[in-house]
Nucleic acid binder design. Structure first.
Lengths: 186, 186
DNA sequence: ACCTTTGTGGAGTGATTAGTCAATCTTGTT
DNA sequence: AACAAGATTGACTAATCACTCCACAAAGGT
């Protein structure tokens, strides 16, 4: 087992449960089954560990998001795939999804350079812009549409986590939700 | 000036900037202009201070939410007023609004009894249920609609904070956003 | 076999922090 | 004025925490 990965796994689990400052590095090391010093061998500071975890998770999410989008897909198909992929991922990686939200609401967010954040959002904003140009989407500010979709996904995923629906009911609700937001922005 | 209030003000400002565990009680006391011991005279623990601040802000928000809702208002009018009030409040109390989100994403949320959370949401859920019964709203789960509206407000308010629109453009966007979510759920 | 590099361990440290406490000050009441 | 009750202070403490350091082990190249 890769100790570096074990440390990230342990950190994720504990951060989600106790918060960033609520979990001492010593407990992370213990949970990961490594010595205290080993943690600091891989991550020079606790802050570096938090940032590494965030970047790692963000990378996984981004990869999965686009995983079922094909080159020939229409804009509408691509939108739908990304929406559904994101929701699938959020449901299958609740801790990770929660961690990202938690991170975004923390002072650590300011440690991520602004350019990296815009770079992350760029593909989505470009798609939205293309949608507006093609008169598929309403002529609203890109960032506004992006913000609405993001929070729509967040709201839905929160509801899915809170309620306890059967898989097929979940699927139906996710599909309906997509139609709702799609109608909203087109 | 009321020292108790000064402590809450200082705590809010610092929590938003540095996070809960990132701000020592000593700094809160200093920022508030009171001695260390005074803080613990009013709040036995740091945790108690955080909870008191949350409850205080939540109370303000709830009051303002319903402030321009009149007894004779139709369901549609009431919905609209609450939506607009919430957004006004969020824009006029950005730190407070951010704090609430931050709190909701923190382990401290679990210290609020579940019954109090449901009690907070009850008036809204009741309104939604009435709307469904009257066939004004789509027949979807109450909590789902509630979740969608909440996150829609969150997304909009985040966009408004990030962008720098003129007051009248803001008003227009808020009004349009309301129409969008209203269309979505009716 | 020898050496270098990298990984691992865990006791130890200096700094920080939540919370205490006893003394002093303020305020209001009789 | 005398008293009581609460408010305020800030030095103090016990505990905790991020991080260091140095010894040792593995791995891998020559």
């Amino acid at each position: 087992m890769d100790k570096q990965k074990e440390i990230l796994n342990a950190a994720l689990k504990l951060f989600v449960e106790f918060g960033f400052h609520g979990t001492p590095t010593s407990k992370i090391a213990k949970e990961a089954g490594v010595a205290n010093g080993t943690l600091f061998h891989y991550y020079p500071t606790k802050e570096a560990l938090i940032l590494a975890l965030y970047k790692d998770i963000k990378l996984q999410l981004t990869e999965y998001m686009y995983s079922r989008v094909n080159a020939g897909d229409s804009l509408e198909q691509a939108f739908r795939s990304i929406f559904l992929n994101t929701l699938d991922w959020a449901q299958d990686h609740k801790e990770e999804y929660y961690f990202v939200q938690q991170f975004n609401m923390s002072p650590f967010l300011s440690l991520i350079p602004k350019e990296e954040i815009t770079r992350q959002a760029k593909p989505h904003l470009d798609m939205i812009q293309a949608g507006i140009k093609n008169k598929i989407l309403k002529p609203l500010p890109n960032e506004f549409i992006y913000s609405l979709i993001s929070s729509h996904i967040y709201g839905l995923s929160q509801y899915l986590s809170a309620s306890d629906l059967s898989p097929q009911k979940q699927k139906k609700l996710i599909s309906d939700s997509y139609d709702m937001i799609w109608d909203m922005i087109t």
